[in-house]
Design a protein around this nucleic acid. Structure first.
Lengths: 271, 271
DNA sequence: TATAAAATGGAATTTATAGTCCATTATGGT
DNA sequence: ACCATAATGGACTATAAATTCCATTTTATA
């Protein structure tokens, strides 16, 4: 018990957390992880709440506090309560502050993108047609193989879905057009193409869709507006209007739709 | 007690406070004044502490809470505590219902992910340390070449940043570890490594960081919590706590930070 | 595989805190 | 100046939360 008082600052707390978290049994590690990801909650929660969040018993959480060097939860909580008096206003005031006060600092920029992302997410629920979404899920669920194509700015979305499908044992293939290779011969009857493209639309993607569409292969499209060139082919279209800030588009809403599709298809298949 | 439930938002709370404070006896007015000046303390204080701060008896403060329309102090405090944590309530239980939701209707699932994304974005503003962000931008701006590494679930983020940098003429290279190739020899003095990894952390990424860190190459890390293994090397760490659905992570917040970094670095270079 | 040690879950206990009540003091009107 | 009414302070009680303890399960070791 050389450690009379636990960490006295948040920084010391984090160091101790890191140092300790290497060698921790299962439950206590859960505590460490949850705490690391939710430091702000400590100040305003009860042990019971923290324990539930971490998925452990209150007593386990207590033990964790002691390992961190505190006498108990209360003492740990005190550290966080004290350091954050004078602390944080709510989201909107904070945002306002950042925008005005810290003009053209990276943090102000972050605030702008966060706001753009939020706006995009909000409009997502409005722009996505539930029937189209259901149709897309149904089509993808029946596919023997899902061929994902998305290049340039859409590539992150395509690779994301590819990863998600793999994790859920949904047969999917990412067409990356590396070295101008064009694997369209891999696409066979019973397969489905999932095309992702946003303005300015990659010709490769459009060409691929055109080709397979002519062969009667179903196409599900993730695109932006109603004027997307993919509309011409009878694809099931899900449109996302992303609020962009400057020339750059944060893909918040698009990825949100992507994960939804992935999970929906994954469960539909296994169910 | 015509007023069954008190104010439900901070805004409503402020309005009620203003409306009420006109006609208040001495002690209760003290409460009102103190609360107005110390709203943030409500979440982390006891009645006794608040009363002392306002210079009144606890019982007087209790009466004040009731006049504000709450049943007591606890109810008033709950309002502040909830708005603090932004209320992404126990996801462990939500996760259980995720499958049912997915089968139920994809739209419900979408709503769930939208909500998760919004919560993640809000907390992003809290978790990102402005100083670290500035340091990261400064370091990346001075790099001769930015080496981006991010595998598996982090790969979409890595490829996104790679694309963004390219568009802004920032010299950057995406290390994809295709075919187990390891291009670490391409990393030279004056370069900077941008590592992106989330739990469970890819060993390849950690190994790379370890290797270059030993050579004195600066590392900027995008990771999740403070217990990330990247902390051990002295990297400039930006942590994003994203809501996880089991193996699935909606990358809304992460991408938001990614685009911010990209644009900030891009402008810093050209400016 | 048997045994000891560590970790865990849950109930019991203790402590702290919110909330109530009433006697006392201040205030405003006649 | 007196009375009626409202406001206040402080002690008391109920409640909810933190903490501890121990029986049970799990894990590591010989």
């Amino acid at each position: 018990m050389a450690d009379a008082g636990g960490p006295a600052t948040i920084k010391a707390f984090e160091e101790r957390l890191l140092e300790v978290s290497e060698s921790l049994p299962k439950r206590l590690r859960q505590c460490a992880d949850y705490v690391a990801a939710n430091k702000d909650r400590i100040a305003v929660s009860t042990v019971a709440e923290m324990a539930e969040g971490a998925g452990v018993q209150p007593s386990a959480f207590m033990r964790f506090c002691q390992i961190m060097g505190f006498s108990g939860f209360s003492e740990m909580q005190r550290l966080f309560r004290e350091t954050f008096v004078g602390g944080w206003p709510d989201y909107s005031t904070r945002l306002h502050h950042l925008r005005e006060k810290a003009e053209d600092s990276p943090t102000a920029l972050l605030a702008e993108f966060v706001e753009a992302g939020r706006a995009s997410l909000e409009s997502l629920l409005k722009t996505v047609d539930p029937h189209h979404l259901e149709a897309a899920v149904a089509t993808l669920s029946k596919a023997n193989m899902i061929h994902i194509i998305g290049l340039r700015r859409s590539f992150p979305v395509a690779s994301y879905m590819s990863y998600a499908f793999e994790k859920m044992d949904v047969p999917a293939m990412l067409h990356s057009a590396v070295g101008r290779l064009d694997n369209r011969n891999a696409i066979r009857d019973g397969d489905v193409v999932l095309a992702i493209t946003f303005s300015p639309y990659s010709v490769e993607t459009i060409e691929l869709v055109e080709a397979v569409s002519a062969r009667g292969i179903p196409v599900v499209a993730l695109t932006d507006t109603v004027v997307s060139p993919l509309r011409k082919f009878d694809a099931i279209t899900l449109s996302v209007s992303e609020v962009d800030f400057g020339a750059f588009r944060s893909l918040s809403a698009t990825l949100c739709l992507a994960i939804t599709l992935s999970v929906a298809v994954g469960t539909a298949r296994s169910g």
